[in-house]
Write a protein that binds this DNA or RNA. Sequence first.
DNA 1: AAAAGACATTGATTCAGATCAATTCAGCCC
DNA 2: GGGCTGAATTGATCTGAATCAATGTCTTTT
Lengths: 251, 251
Amino acid sequence: MSDQTTCQRDARPRRLILAGAHRQPGYCLSCGIRAQSVCSVIDDDDIARLAETAVETLVLPGRTFIEEGAPATDFYNITSGNVKLFKALPDGRRQITGFATTGHFLGLAVSDQYAFGAEAMDTVRLCRFSRARMRQLMDDFPRLERRLLAEASNELVAAQNQMLLLGRKTARERVASFLLERVREVPNPSEDVPLPMTRSDMADYLGLTIETVSRTLSWMRTERLVAIGKGHTVRITAMERLEALAAGEAA
Amino acid sequence: MSDQTTCQRDARPRRLILAGAHRQPGYCLSCGIRAQSVCSVIDDDDIARLAETAVETLVLPGRTFIEEGAPATDFYNITSGNVKLFKALPDGRRQITGFATTGHFLGLAVSDQYAFGAEAMDTVRLCRFSRARMRQLMDDFPRLERRLLAEASNELVAAQNQMLLLGRKTARERVASFLLERVREVPNPSEDVPLPMTRSDMADYLGLTIETVSRTLSWMRTERLVAIGKGHTVRITAMERLEALAAGEAA
DNA sequence: AAAAGACATTGATTCAGATCAATTCAGCCC
DNA sequence: GGGCTGAATTGATCTGAATCAATGTCTTTT
């Protein structure tokens, strides 16, 4: 993380790598900076062609860096940090469609407008490509396209799960599902699960109000399903029952 | 449509084509039968390698041909007909995550289980590939992979819209959004829009009950927003107002 | 044409979650 | 520590859509 300061265009990296799923350290495909988790190694000889159009950006917490409906000019790869993706209605109602973190690609759209907004939840570092550049990169590196297709497929599965949640699950089932989704982010299921978002974000993600989220968490505490810790953490204390609840198997 | 009877493996087609978005007639990539709407032309010389592993299947109305949670062995391309995709909870609650028709690909998943079920709404004709075969096809024909990525991107956008609908829209807004989605399927917005699904399907798609769907359509009729025709058709009579309602701009 | 069955509409009532309204709590900055 | 501010919790009440319950309308079968 020490050399993860700004975009080092001139400092030729040895290998050019994409931040992403495989969680091994390497260099960002676009800007060549060292990133924490990466995949899709591309060999040395390609560097010259690639290290050109790189733009690395630092986004401050709370900043909306993709505006829903704006012309979709760029394509992003998150190098570090957490992002919430959302859609909104004119009267302010909001639906968070997902959370994205290190390695995620954003802005993949066939349309010429962004279909969603994106806001930084903490300090976010990302690499920005033009869409033309992206197309070129996909032509040059079929692995990138394969990778994007895999990511899109996974997101589609997640989206289908979320549709089931929003369309058919009760408040308790929704919160249980959400907590289990968060648990999958930590290595050990019995340790504290960080919830790096506000109650308002949870509500907008789950199609509920902050009051209902709060009440439901309180209910889970009295039912000994979870222990609510200080500073936005939760520990699961009855995994089986929580899983049954999330799956809609409750009485 | 005349020669669209069964899979004609031995009858060598002149060109091998993928059913899909471009809406031009041609031959199915996998089995070589003539399909109504196709794209992604692949040149003659590839036929020998391709026409092998073809399996064409005819699916009767109401038949579930992809079972949620079953091993994801195959990959499908719909040659004709309409399909509903859904997820279900153990107690029978159901969420339809989308409708698929001619040209759609199904079963694209990184996981080894199908994330959703698929049921034929009418007589459906489809081509089945093994997943190994699919991988090979993608290697041989980069256009196919490009095409799948575009389709996945579009579906992702649709899924995000649906999440906003399910999480934050009222019953009236949901039904209005649904009708406008259907209108986009017909060439002329003022003509009759077919609704080839039952009230129950609409309810399971919109996260409502059949009663609420029915009541809402009746309300729209009395408000002169739509005219409800015989045999599952609707005509929009106040497009502007319906669009405002769907967008959540109502008073 | 009548009977059966599935689908759709309409009405009465209930209820889960929203809304409105106070507190209470957790950081933070002096 | 003591105020300050935004977030979270808890309580009281309301309401949109669900549920329960007929009734009506197509389609298919014989």
